[in-house]
């Protein structure tokens, strides 16, 4: 089993863009999706990202921090999962019901194992 980080990026936010009805369905389906991953022992962690992100940059020797400037795309949250390989991780990411609700991109990153291989 290998660890993967799935970064969820959405165009707009489900909280502000979905009707109460759609939001309710979104939460229910999302819950079922997460439950299933838990049941299969594949979920290590999943967290939505709150408002107020900052970004730290280096410019001409000074390290500055400022508001995280998002365009219409925003980082909605992440999943830390385990899967046998990248293909399974991709399949898990594809199964996320969020695709039905809002334009979404999911990045699938393999995490480097401790000790290496």
């Amino acid at each position: 089993m290998k660890d993967f980080l799935l970064i969820i990026k959405t165009e707009g936010s489900v909280w502000s863009d979905l009707s109460p009805d759609a939001l309710q369905r979104h939460m229910q389906q999302g819950g079922q999706y997460i439950s299933k991953l838990m049941e299969e022992g594949k979920l290590k962690n999943a967290n939505p990202i709150d408002k107020g992100s900052r970004i730290i940059t280096e410019e001409k020797g000074t390290i500055k921090d400022g508001p995280f400037n998002e365009g219409k795309e925003l980082v909605a949250g992440y999943f830390h999962i385990v899967a046998t390989d990248i293909d399974e991780a991709v399949a898990i990411a594809k199964g996320n019901p969020i695709f039905e609700d809002i334009p979404t991109q999911i990045e699938v990153h393999p995490l480097m194992p401790v000790g290496g291989e």
Partner: peptide, 16 residues
């Protein structure tokens, strides 16, 4: 325990 720290996983974790 950490599943109860995230609003994405709290309810599914309690149910499951």
């Amino acid at each position: 325990a950490h599943f109860l720290d995230s609003i994405w996983t709290t309810q599914p974790a309690l149910d499951y």
